[in-house]
């Protein structure tokens, strides 16, 4: 495990150094990432200047929710960007080399790239979380802080697992582009708003079928003491389940890997 982590870190580090060679590109990407978070914030502030609450969520609470979603989404490009190239790798038979190296294939795949727009998401999302927390009514205690951090880690785990899972579908779907993963992850964008605004079908889907709601809605509900806050505490369990599922599907997919005909 330690060895695996070291390989992951080194690989990511090498790609980071390569990306930082182009300073202008780095800044453009960071700003672009940041702009999208700012857009979310502007939307919410414009809406809340006309209404006091959105389905019982105040402005700071809604900002906390969207910020959490943005923050967690920034982790994908920073730490799992390589995953998005899996479809192309499968299609071109480029998993041949990872398969002959003494390191887990998934680690080699996941760490084969880095997207700096994640930095913008982290900054923007982080700032929104900060604002949301500072202006919400939360009874802080050591347990609450610990719980919040745990839930954040779990929610990040869920999203990263979904990224792996969606991209691993490329083993079956084929083609050069991770269409399935894109659809899976982009659909999750709906989770940046309180889940209660959606119809029952969407709510059920986002809770049970694809657990987007555990990325931001349920953890934030727990922290803010919304109704059925206890569901938020299930987030770590959901995370464990997602990791298990993602690994399983990736392994099954890898067994189907057929290389390419040259």
């Amino acid at each position: 495990m330690r060895r695996t982590l070291r390989i992951y870190r080194r690989s990511l580090g090498a790609h980071l150094r390569a990306v930082l060679e182009y300073e202008a590109d780095f800044w453009i990407l960071v700003v672009a990432g940041l702009l999208f978070q700012v857009l979310n914030l502007i939307f919410l502030s414009a809406v809340f200047s006309h209404v006091p609450a959105l389905n019982g969520w105040s402005f700071p609470e809604a900002v906390l929710l969207a910020g959490t979603y943005g923050f967690v989404n920034g982790l994908g490009p920073l730490f799992f960007e390589g995953t998005w190239r899996l479809a192309g790798k499968i299609n071109h038979g480029e998993l041949d080399y990872p398969l002959i190296r003494p390191a887990p294939v998934l680690v080699q795949v996941v760490s084969a790239g880095i997207g700096m727009h994640g930095v913008g998401d982290l900054i923007g999302g982080g700032a929104m979380i900060g604002y949301g927390l500072a202006n919400s009514d939360i009874a802080w205690s050591p347990a609450r802080i610990g719980g919040a951090l745990l839930l954040l880690a779990a929610s990040a785990t869920i999203l990263l697992s979904l990224i792996v899972l969606g991209n691993a579908a490329s083993f079956w779907v084929g083609g050069n582009h991770p269409v399935f993963a894109m659809t899976l992850i982009r659909t999750g964008d709906m989770a940046k708003y309180p889940l209660s605004i959606y119809g029952v079908a969407v709510r059920a889907t986002f809770t049970v079928l694809v657990p987007y709601a555990f990325i931001s809605f349920f953890p934030a509900s727990w922290l803010l003491g919304k109704e059925s806050a206890w569901i938020g505490l299930l987030t770590p369990l959901v995370a464990v389940y997602c990791v298990y599922l993602a690994r399983l599907i990736f392994r099954q997919g890898l067994r189907r890997y057929d290389s390419a005909g040259h």
Partner: peptide, 13 residues
């Protein structure tokens, strides 16, 4: 292993 048609070097590095 070497596949002459394909590189195992990381493209961007």
């Amino acid at each position: 292993v070497l596949f002459g048609q394909r590189t195992q070097l990381w493209w961007d590095l």
